[in-house]
Simulated scan of single mutants.
Amino acid sequence: MTALRSLLFTILFYGGTVVYVLLSFPIALFGQRPLRRHVGNWARFHRRCAAWILGIRSRTEGDPPTGAVVVAAKHQSMFETLEIVLLLDEPAIVMKRQLADIPLFGWVTLRYGCIPVDRSGGGAALRRMMRAAGDAIAQGRPIVIFPEGTRVRPGERPPLQPGFAGLYRALKLPVVPLALDSGRLWPRGFAKRPGIVTMRFGETVPPGLPRGEAESAVHRAINALDPAA
């Protein structure tokens, strides 16, 4: 049954996603607001497919932040990348620069207001990232970053990437950690298991702390639901 559910989800969700992506190009021509509503609809489509087909739902612990803050999230599966869009108010998501370079798709992500980061781009890349982040802050949008830098399996707790410290120091915004345990149900590979994903917003880390103190607080909080914690 698990394999059948996973196959049905793959067919319906990714088939529907092709339609959403194709529609995003003309919608993006009308501005950011219509595009962000469209992305929200795609995220709701994902939520319904995950719940009705896979039997995967989420519960939220703590209060989702509002306004211009940095949300530092654990990353264990694709599930949270779309669920976060629904938990927050039109978040600006920090993503790899390579995704922004994909023809058409990259233009749409930038139009939405994602923030590309090039880890090897030096000062010019940092300035581009800061301009994009400044636009999001001016609009009162939360900024989402996956500070460990990549998707990890349950039990893995890699150190935070240096980019987090640079963003924290430069933006001077409070950071709200987000712990989650989606990897239990949505592991790498094809099969996905039914259950409840917990999304836990932790205590706010204020701006201006020493780097080590801020990184330690965020790392500890985003791994609060990890089996190794």
Rank of each mutant, 00 (worst) to 15 (best):
E215F: 10
A221N: 03
A51S: 12
G155P: 04
P206G: 09
S6F: 10
A72Y: 01
L22D: 02
V218R: 01
L110R: 15
R188Y: 12
G149A: 08
L54Y: 03
P65I: 09
A214S: 05
F13W: 00
I222G: 02
L225V: 01
A51H: 05
I143Y: 04
R131N: 05
W107R: 15
G183H: 00
T10A: 15
P159C: 02
R5T: 04
V19D: 07
P227K: 08
L126P: 02
R37S: 08
V197K: 06
R184P: 13
M130L: 15
R119F: 10
L22T: 12
G113N: 00
L160G: 01
G189S: 09
G155F: 13
M78C: 12
I27W: 04
T60R: 07
L7H: 09
W186A: 01
Q76H: 09
V21N: 00
Q98M: 11
D226E: 02
Q161P: 13
L12F: 13
W107E: 14
V21I: 10
P206F: 02
T17M: 07
C49G: 03
Y20A: 05
A3G: 12
A100T: 13
R119T: 06
R200C: 13
M78N: 14
G122H: 03
A73M: 06
E213L: 13
V175Y: 09
A100Q: 00
I196E: 03
T109W: 00
P34D: 02
P34T: 04
P207T: 00
A132N: 00
R48I: 14
F201H: 08
G62K: 12
F105Q: 08
L8R: 08
V94W: 12
G208R: 07
L22P: 11
S24Y: 03
A133Q: 07
Q139R: 15
Q32K: 12
D135W: 04
G62S: 07
L4K: 14
A165D: 10
M130G: 09
V39W: 09
M95R: 11
M1Y: 13
H38K: 06
I53N: 02
H75A: 04
L7P: 03
G195V: 08
M1N: 07
A229E: 14
V117S: 10
V39I: 13
P158S: 08
R211E: 14
L178Q: 03
G134N: 07
V71N: 05
F79Y: 12
L86R: 14
R141I: 01
P159K: 06
R200L: 13
L29V: 07
R193D: 01
G123E: 15
P91S: 05
R151T: 11
D118Q: 05
Q139N: 13
I53M: 02
A50R: 06
A165G: 06
A51W: 01
R44C: 11
